[in-house]
Write a protein that binds this DNA or RNA. Structure first.
Lengths: 142, 142
DNA sequence: CTATTTAATTATCATTTGATAACCATAATA
DNA sequence: TATTATGGTTATCAAATGATAATTAAATAG
C-alpha cells in the first residue's frame, strides 16, 4: 500500500472514530452545561490539577474565553480554583465534589455504551483491539 | 486487561486521535467558510452525491440549519444542487469545480502534514499502522 | 380525489462561541 | 527601583450555531 492510500485510509479511519465517539457520547452530558464546558470538564477530569493556561492551550480556547467559561463552571459549583502559594498568579483547577459526580455520571453512560458495543467480542478480539490501539498510539497518534 | 481498563485506554486513544486530527487540519480550510460549512463540504466530498437529508442525519444538523448552510455554500459557488427526476422533492448535492479545488487544496495541506508525520516510519511501521487501522475499523469503529 | 407524509425552505430568535482591547496583580529582570 | 513579562480577568462585540414554527411542493396512501 502506498503512502497516498494510507492517507485515504487514515481519513476514513478518523471519520469513523469521530462518528462512533459522537454516538457513544451524545446526550451523555448534563443539559446544564454547554459542549465547550463539557470539553473543559473532561480535560480537567483526566488531567487535574490543571491551570487555566493549560486549558487554553490544550483546548484551543483563548485565555479570555477560557476564563469566562471557568467562571461559569465555578458559579455552577462544578470546579474549584486554588491559587499557587509559590506563584500567586497561577491557579490550580480541579473538579468539585459536584463536578466529579457529574462527570462520573457522564462517563458511566459512555462506558456502558462502549461495553455494549463490545459485548460480542471474544477475548482475542479484545486483545487485538488493545494491541491495535497501542500501535496507533505510539506510531501515529503520538 | 479487563474491560474497564480497555475503556480507559479507549478514552485516551480517542483523545489522541482528536488531538492529532486537530493538529493536522488546523488552518487547512479556507477562511471564507465556517467550521460547520467545512465539515459539510468534507462530507459531500467523500460521499457525493448526497441529499440534504443525509447531510442533516450524518452531520447532526437540523434540516432547517442544513438548508441554510447549503444555501450559503451554494451562494459561494462551492456546491451545486440537482433535483432528482424521479422524486422532484429530492436534491442531489455535489461539489462545483470551485468547491473541488478548495477541498483539494485543503486535503493537500492535511496530507502533507500527515506524510511528514510518517517520514521516519519504516515499511514495517506502515504495515503495522495499516493493519491496526483495519482491526479497529472492523472491530470497534464500525 | 382528499388526506397524509416526506423533502426541503424560509423566517426568526436565543444561545454559544470567538475575537479583541484594556486591565490588574504578581513575578522576574535590568 | 523601574521595567518588562506572565497569568489571569473583565467587558464588549460580532459571528456562528442551534432551535422552533410556519410554509411549499411533491409523493403516497386511503
Amino acid at each position: 500500500m502506498d503512502k497516498k492510500a494510507l492517507f485515504d485510509k487514515w481519513v476514513a479511519f478518523t471519520t469513523s472514530v469521530h462518528q462512533v465517539t459522537h454516538e457513544l457520547t451524545q446526550n451523555a452530558k448534563s443539559d446544564s452545561i454547554t459542549p465547550v464546558q463539557y470539553n473543559i470538564l473532561e480535560y480537567i477530569t483526566v488531567s487535574q490539577p490543571v491551570t487555566p493556561s493549560e486549558i487554553s492551550d490544550c483546548q484551543h480556547i483563548s485565555m479570555p474565553n477560557t476564563s469566562r467559561e471557568l467562571k461559569k463552571l465555578s458559579e455552577k459549583n462544578l470546579i474549584e480554583k486554588v491559587s499557587d502559594s509559590e506563584d500567586r498568579r497561577k491557579q490550580y483547577i480541579h473538579l468539585s465534589k459536584e463536578g466529579e459526580m457529574m462527570m462520573n455520571e457522564a462517563f458511566a453512560i459512555v462506558e456502558s455504551r462502549f461495553q455494549s458495543r463490545l459485548q460480542h467480542a471474544s477475548k482475542e478480539d479484545l486483545a487485538d483491539i488493545e494491541r491495535a490501539m497501542d500501535i496507533l498510539q505510539t506510531k501515529l497518534f503520538y
